[in-house]
Design a binder for these strands. Structure first.
Lengths: 249, 249
DNA sequence: TACAAGGAGGCACTAACGTGCATAAAAGAA
DNA sequence: TTCTTTTATGCACGTTAGTGCCTCCTTGTA
């Protein structure tokens, strides 16, 4: 059994049982207690578990069925999220809007991060409920249920008095000839404002969104700083040749 | 049983019972009194409990984390919610703040309701995601993770330009001599503003919240219109004799 | 003041830990 | 593939944490 595999098992068991005993794990996974101890040490260092004498405790509530399914189905999104994590540091002011890719990203954020997160998405805000050192600022507005984000004039006005170091933009699709587009004018206005108040902009894009033709409102992309994606075709490359493109294989 | 687990148990019990006796705990948790004493000493040092001769006292009001509270006494909350539903009609503008009782209420709202809901609580907003004919207005602010509501000056300012027919107020406890109280000044300010902009005010209160002594900031209750509760003692009855008290048996 | 219950600190025992080292297993490089 | 390098694992052994018991001291109450 591989180390990663074993550690995944430990996390899985811990998720179900809320606590584990090192000696117990040693028997269940057929490795020495030393190995288990080393695993627990590592996982604790990563902030995934709480190491205690004799074993370890789960951090936070168990991951429920719904979120588990999301994890399984969105392997690519997880990989993109992990890559995007490289651009996150302590003490940043991070602006994040909605979308499942962004939600996946937020779920990857280590509990140890110290930062300020501004968001107009209730699910994103709630996903940060366990992060003690992350201050969450919610931007209000009219809830747009399709994508679970707050939009409207109030949202734009509230954003007016804020500034962020990095804006993690949720993306629907990228038209190779125009750029990033969104399905509604309200969303476009909010995203435009968000782009304006941020120093850098990062977008995570899964390949199904690349190279799609769209007749929706354009969101200006001239300030895009990082594009994190799986692979990229010639058109997109040309469009973004001024920006850093991170390709996750 | 792990040390941390045991201490967690002690805190849990103390949270429910307000005081504990060391010798008692020794029996209940099957460890020696010495160990219990050491635990109490540690927890006291961390400022989580107040150590006294013979045992320990709880510091402040009973507070459990949001996800835990969600599962506590939800059956009675459901019954309160169903009763409170009598005061809801189509085309109303309903203002709802946070709390698990309120969340339970929102989950009872029929999908057919046509209304506008204003809230500063992300979970409440998300719970209305399926209601096609409910327009949800989210009020932004700084997310207060313990109760999952947005608070702060921005919240109060945003509320300033709104009006509601009914405010469903989340309640922590009712002091028989003072009235409704909340654990923080930020929350008090927001609740006060919410009360000001609403024509009627409704509060659902489970019996464990009745008649509890609290030294926290008062939230003015003079405008309270409906009190929906399980049962009510003389003190509370006297305090609210101007208002409609609905008792759910 | 006296007396019982509770508490502090020391001691001892056991289970758990960490570390260094030898060996086995992966992962890369040729 | 085969060899080399790196990483992971298990064992030995000295150290530490957690617990119960004991003794002496403190606190609360009659």
């Amino acid at each position: 059994m591989l180390k990663e595999e074993r550690q995944q098992n430990i996390l899985q068991i811990l998720n179900e049982e809320h606590k584990i005993i090192a000696s117990d794990m040693s028997r269940r996974l057929s490795v020495s207690e030393d190995t288990i101890r080393r695993d627990l040490k590592e996982l604790d260092k990563k902030g995934l578990i709480k190491r205690v004498h004799s074993g370890a405790l789960r951090i936070g509530p168990p991951v429920v069925d719904f979120t588990t399914r999301q994890h399984i189905s969105s392997d690519i999104k997880t990989r993109l999220a992990k890559k995007a994590m490289d651009f996150i540091n302590d003490d940043m002011v991070i602006l994040i809007d909605g979308g499942t890719t962004n939600l996946q990203f937020v779920k990857q954020i280590p509990l140890s991060l110290k930062a300020t997160v501004i968001t107009n998405s209730p699910p994103i805000a709630m996903a940060l409920g366990e992060h003690q050192d992350v201050e969450v600022i919610m931007v209000g507005g009219t809830l747009f249920k399709q994508s679970m984000v707050n939009l409207g004039i109030d949202t734009v006005e509230a954003l007016d008095s804020m500034r962020a170091d990095l804006y993690i933009m949720g993306v629907y699709n990228i038209d190779p000839h125009i750029g990033i587009s969104v399905p509604s004018i309200s969303e476009a206005l909010v995203k435009r404002k968000m782009a304006n108040i941020s120093t850098e902009i990062l977008a995570m894009v899964t390949s199904d969104k690349l190279d799609t033709v769209s007749n929706h409102i354009i969101c200006p992309t001239s300030e895009l700083t990082y594009l994190v994606t799986e692979n990229v075709n010639a058109n997109v490359k040309k469009l973004y040749n001024n920006h850093e493109i991170v390709v996750v294989e």
